[in-house]
Simulated scan of single mutants.
Amino acid sequence: MKKFILSFLMISGVALTANAQFKAGIHFGYGTEIERPAIGVNAEFNLMEKLSVAPDFTYYFTEKISYVTTNLWELNLNAHYYFLGQDKFKVFGLGGLNYAHYNVKSEIDIPFFGVNTAASDGKIGFNVGGGATYQLIEKLEAFSTIKYTVSSTDQAVFYVGARYLF
Rank of each mutant, 00 (worst) to 15 (best):
A79K: 07
L75N: 14
V128S: 05
S120V: 03
V128F: 13
F61H: 06
G40H: 06
F83Y: 03
K50G: 04
F112M: 01
F126G: 11
Q86Y: 14
M48Y: 13
D56T: 10
T133N: 10
Q86P: 00
E49R: 09
Y99W: 03
F92K: 05
S52F: 11
G85S: 10
H101R: 13
H80S: 04
L97F: 06
G40W: 04
T117P: 00
W73Y: 13
E74P: 03
L51W: 09
V115A: 05
A119C: 01
E138P: 07
F45H: 15
T69W: 01
I110E: 01
A132L: 06
F113H: 05
K50H: 12
P55Q: 08
Y59E: 06
E33N: 15
Y102G: 10
I39L: 14
G85V: 02
V53Y: 11
A119V: 14
A79H: 06
Y59N: 04
G93M: 05
Y82S: 05
I110S: 00
E107K: 12
D109A: 01
F83N: 02
Y102S: 05
G114H: 13
E107F: 10
G114K: 12
G31M: 14
V41D: 01
L84M: 06
M48S: 13
W73I: 13
G95F: 09
T133S: 05
G131I: 03
I34W: 10
A38P: 10
Y81H: 05
V53M: 11
T133E: 08
E141G: 00
V128W: 06
K123C: 04
Y99T: 00
L84R: 02
G125H: 05
K123H: 13
Y82N: 10
G129R: 09
E74K: 15
A132Y: 04
G85N: 11
E107Y: 11
A118T: 04
I34D: 08
G95K: 04
F92H: 03
G130D: 04
K139T: 07
N71S: 02
G125C: 01
Q86C: 09
L94V: 09
S66V: 10
E74Q: 15
G85Q: 14
A43Q: 14
K105Q: 02
F89V: 07
D109Y: 05
E141F: 00
E35T: 13
F113R: 06
L94R: 12
T133H: 01
T32Y: 14
V104P: 03
F89A: 12
D121H: 09
P55N: 06
N78D: 11
A118P: 00
S120A: 11
R36Y: 14
V68P: 00
L75P: 13
H80A: 04
Y102F: 14
T58M: 10
Y59L: 06
N71C: 03
N46K: 15
Y59T: 10
E35N: 15
G114P: 03
G122P: 04
L94S: 10
G129T: 07
D109F: 03
E44L: 11
A43R: 13
I65F: 13
Y102C: 03
M48D: 09
A43K: 12
K50C: 07
P111K: 02
F113T: 09
K90R: 00
G122T: 05
L75R: 10
A54C: 12
I124W: 00
L77F: 04
Y60H: 14
F57K: 08
I39S: 01
A132H: 03
Q135D: 12
G96H: 08
N76Y: 08
N42Y: 00
G40P: 14
T62H: 02
G129E: 11
